[in-house]
Computed example of a mutant assay.
Amino acid sequence: MWNNFKNYLSHSKIFVKEIVLLSLVFLLSASFFFHYPIHKIISLLFLTFVIDIVFLYSLGKKRALEIDEIKTTIKNIRKNKYNSPNEIQMSKSLVDLEGNIKAMFKRTQRDITQMQKLEQTRKEFLGNVSHELRTPIFALQGFLETLLNGALYDEKVNKQFLEKAYRHSENLNALLNDLIDISMIESGQMRMSFRYFNLNNFLNEIYQQVKEPAERKNIQFILNKLDPDLDVYGDKDRLTQVMNNLLSNAIKYTEKGRVELIVEEKQKSVWIKVKDTGVGIPQEDLNRVFERFYRTDRDRSKTIPGTGLGLAIVKHIIEAHDSKIEVVSDKDVGSEFSFKLKKHKD
């Protein structure tokens, strides 16, 4: 009992100055206006002291209970006893604080969820990277081991094995370059150099670079005509990377038919489209094709070279141009990837 009394009074320390000041003002006013004799003033002083103690005790008790309630609520949050902010209930005197704690709880839950997602993404990314790295490395080791075990001097197979080893080293180099790019993009460290450039010259350069693999597969590669004086705004080097990714994918996944590079000029922008008659993408996979390492057909992807990062890089680069990469596709019919760039004002 005595400990509780001392505890409650200790919680009312912050009110002592105000209570004492009010009491002194009351006593001085009473003695001045009513001209009390000294013994009545002493009695009034004692009565005021008792009232002050009772008042401070009540204030201290109320404050102590509120602090205990706050501590209990915070303790329950730390122990994850609340599943939703609506479960947090406090007394009427703490209604404002209750609202702030609920808001803090919501933010904390969002942060925890985000951290869990990031951790899961990190694990998946590391798992995918290790898997993608393991494939060309193991292949290289196998070919080199075979060569060292005697095939190096066998003219029938040594060149074939060396060529295969070289192709796998190229795949490994492409994967490492893409990993560096995606890491720099997602960390905000990739520098972009925006300027106006001639779109006709740009696409013709891309066309000359990509037409050879299309011709090897007997695929029509068509660059539609466009305004020779049309200028667009963007990072030319990064857009070269975008076009190479889109066109190489279109050619890789097209066995017959054609790949078209289409330009549609609008009032303030220019749409660039890559359209093919390839295998297409199932509707259920369209929302995920821009995820890192996502493959719509993993069995088929094993026979087609690629890092699984190309479209993820494309997405980030196009978004850095205040645009969005869009895709329309039907399985066994073909796909169309498109994005827009700002056009130079005449």
Rank of each mutant, 00 (worst) to 15 (best):
D52Y: 07
S31V: 10
L126Q: 12
R288N: 15
L230G: 11
Y294H: 11
L118W: 10
V333L: 00
K79R: 07
F221S: 12
P37L: 02
L27C: 04
K275Y: 12
P282T: 12
R167P: 08
Y294K: 04
K159L: 15
W2A: 03
M184C: 06
I222Q: 00
L133W: 08
K331G: 00
N76W: 05
D346W: 08
E319I: 06
F5K: 01
E119T: 13
T240F: 00
L199I: 03
S10P: 01
K256V: 06
E87R: 03
G308Y: 05
L47Y: 14
R258P: 04
M190S: 10
A174L: 07
K236L: 03
K159C: 06
G127K: 09
I88D: 06
Y8Q: 01
K81I: 02
V263T: 15
N244P: 05
D52S: 15
K81E: 15
A250C: 00
D178F: 05
R238F: 09
L239C: 00
L152T: 08
K123Q: 11
I262L: 08
N244F: 13
V314A: 12
P305G: 12
F339V: 10
F33R: 01
F46K: 13
R288H: 10
T307L: 05
D285P: 09
T108A: 07
F49N: 14
M192Y: 15
N204F: 06
L24Y: 12
L203P: 03
Y82A: 05
I77E: 07
L45G: 15
I318F: 04
V232T: 03
K123P: 05
M90A: 00
I317V: 15
T254M: 02
S335P: 06
I101R: 00
G142S: 09
M184N: 14
F33A: 12
V270T: 06
S23P: 06
E124L: 11
F34R: 13
E212W: 10
D322W: 01
T296M: 13
L118Q: 15
S335Y: 03
E215H: 13
K61N: 12
L148Q: 14
K102W: 02
G306Q: 12
V328Y: 11
L118I: 13
E205W: 02
Q114H: 03
I281K: 10
R63N: 10
Y294Q: 09
K340L: 09
K331Y: 06
G127D: 09
S23W: 10
E98S: 08
E98N: 05
D227G: 07
S58T: 06
V242H: 02
F337A: 00
Y153C: 02
E163F: 00
N173A: 14
G188W: 02
F161Y: 11
E336D: 02
D237A: 03
A103Q: 09
V157Q: 08
E255K: 13
N200H: 08
D297L: 07
L28Q: 03
S12E: 12
Q114T: 14
Q160M: 11
D68T: 09
K340Y: 11
V333M: 07
N3G: 09
K123Y: 08
M184V: 07
L247H: 06
L28A: 09
N86P: 00
L126E: 09
N83T: 14
L199V: 00
L341R: 01
V274C: 13
N100T: 11
